[in-house]
């Protein structure tokens, strides 16, 4: 279930966007190439930073663990001659892989649908600009920004059987993160749930006021929020292992 959600989500969203651009092509046709791309990719990125990415992570972390909760297989997994460390880390890295897969597909589908649009509607100046490198950098940064939340959500989903607890905690924390990031609170970078939003916010081109001129976007990969995200990810991952080690399997 987690796997298909990681595949279908980017596909559906990019498809919707494609339809949107396709049917309103005359409005966008006036824009220069870079702006068309930025509008196209930016529409996804805007939601991505706020709700989409955290929710996706909450869901992936839940589904990877829920499959064992639902089938009551934790006890049989932990009574196999396999180190607890292997079971725990295999689960974690699968969740990590799903997040990476999903974000990669977002990049591929964005570029793919963009180029497809430029074939169908040459008047949209998609072919005037290449966004591949920039987009890859942005999504890679988003991936790094999501690691902190992933570790926390993974642990929550491992500990709680039901969906509501990890989902509720994650949802409230995400909202708090968005508010912090949007208020520009100085310490927002310490809060993992704000990292996706901070990443997207940091992309605001400096010369946007100049109207249709080509905006300059540079991605600074290793900002302090990314370091916090990585540190939280590693710390919670290790902490989670010790909890698994101590925990009784019901």
């Amino acid at each position: 279930m987690g796997f298909w959600s990681a595949v279908l989500l980017p596909l559906l969203i990019c498809l919707l966007l494609f339809i949107g651009f396709f049917s309103h092509s005359e409005k966008i046709a006036k824009l220069p190439g870079p702006m068309v791309w930025l509008q196209f990719a930016g529409a996804i990125l805007a939601v991505m930073g706020s709700l989409l990415l955290p929710m996706l992570i909450i869901f992936i972390a839940y589904s990877v663990n829920n499959i064992e909760h639902k089938s009551e297989t934790w006890k049989s997994l932990f009574s196999l001659p396999i180190a607890k460390w292997s079971i725990y880390s295999a689960k974690y890295f699968y969740a990590l892989f799903l997040v990476l897969l999903c974000l990669t597909l977002f990049v591929l589908f964005t570029i793919g649908f963009g180029n497809f649009l430029s074939v169908l509607k040459p008047e949209l100046k998609f072919n005037e600009y290449h966004i591949e490198k920039l987009l890859t950098q942005i999504y890679f940064k988003l991936f790094l920004a999501s690691l902190g939340i992933l570790s926390i959500q993974f642990l929550l989903s491992l500990l709680f059987r039901d969906f509501l607890k990890p989902m509720g905690i994650g949802f409230v924390a995400t909202i708090a993160g968005i508010i912090m990031a949007n208020l520009g609170w100085g310490y927002a970078y310490l809060f993992p749930y704000a990292h996706a939003m901070l990443t997207v916010k940091s992309l605001k081109p400096s010369n946007i006021a100049n109207g249709p001129a080509v905006p300059q976007i540079t991605v600074e990969l290793f900002t302090k929020d990314i370091f916090v995200s990585l540190a939280v990810a590693v710390a919670v991952f290790i902490l989670g292992y010790f909890i698994v080690l101590k925990k009784s399997v019901k």
Binding site: I67, S71, E72, T73, W74, K75, S76, S79
Partner: peptide, 9 residues
């Protein structure tokens, strides 16, 4: 081992 209800996917 088999514990309580069988654990199967």
């Amino acid at each position: 081992s088999l514990i309580e209800q069988p654990a199967i996917y």
